[in-house]
């Protein structure tokens, strides 16, 4: 995973609440391997009509925001389905940070595993930042993950992020490698757990029928 420390980039306003993972990546693209280009179908049904024409009023369709790396979104961003491919789609399109008042729990966890920052600010701050980037789209927004600040327009905002997620993003940590260092504890735990809770093991072995 790529580290995230600081980023200055254009920010696109999407100040709608409840942009759930079905909106970020419609279910019909879930069978695509990531290599097929999930970024190309990001927000597909919000960006395009049924005939594949761009919807003019969707901010991401404006030329100057197509190179944005930061999203300024409404509350409950990424709620709903656990599909990690929604994060792949955002990341592969080029986004590295989403600013919103709240995020779906599973989405936020998927984001940190893939180097995407979820920055939590108040509803009022989102409205402020969306207004600032709308009136001056060319002016970059700066995210400083170490200091947990966002510089947008003429103001500096503090944002919240789970401290463990922040650490992981700053260092580009890999969970699996970390877990490996606890291998002995895991083995010991699994033996003791089975002795303590013998019923936790299925009463019979599974059989394969396809």
């Amino acid at each position: 995973m790529e580290k995230f420390v600081q980023l200055s980039a254009k920010a696109c306003p999407l100040p709608f609440s409840n942009l759930n993972t079905d909106q970020i990546l419609p279910a019909r693209y879930l069978k695509w391997p990531r290599s097929k280009g999930l970024g190309t179908v990001l927000f597909q049904d919000l960006r395009f009509d049924a005939d594949g024409n761009q919807k003019k009023d969707f901010p991401l369709n404006q030329l100057l925001w197509q190179s944005a790396k930061i999203l300024v979104a409404g509350r409950n961003f990424g709620g709903g389905s656990s599909r990690e491919a929604a994060v792949y789609a955002l990341y592969d399109y080029g986004f590295r940070c989403v600013i919103a008042p709240s995020f779906g729990d599973i989405f936020a966890q998927n984001a940190v595993k893939n180097g995407l920052v979820t920055a939590v600010v108040s509803d009022a701050d989102v409205a402020d930042m969306a207004a600032a980037v709308s009136s001056n789209p060319e002016r970059p927004v700066t995210i400083d993950l170490d200091r947990r600040t966002i510089v947008c327009g003429d103001r500096t905002y503090a944002f919240e992020i789970d401290p463990v997620s922040r650490n992981q993003l700053l260092n580009g940590w890999d969970d699996v490698d970390l877990t490996e260092s606890y291998r002995d504890q895991i083995v010991r735990f699994s033996i003791e757990h089975r002795a303590r809770q013998p019923w936790a093991v299925p009463a019979r072995a599974g059989t394969q029928v396809s």
Binding site: S82, R83, I106, Q109, N110, D175, V176, L178, T179, E180
Partner: peptide, 17 residues
């Protein structure tokens, strides 16, 4: 519910952070 990276972690280690 968990995402794909967590599914992979559980497959490989039977644990989750």
């Amino acid at each position: 519910g968990i995402g794909a990276s967590e599914v992979a972690h559980v497959l490989m280690t039977q644990t989750l952070w």
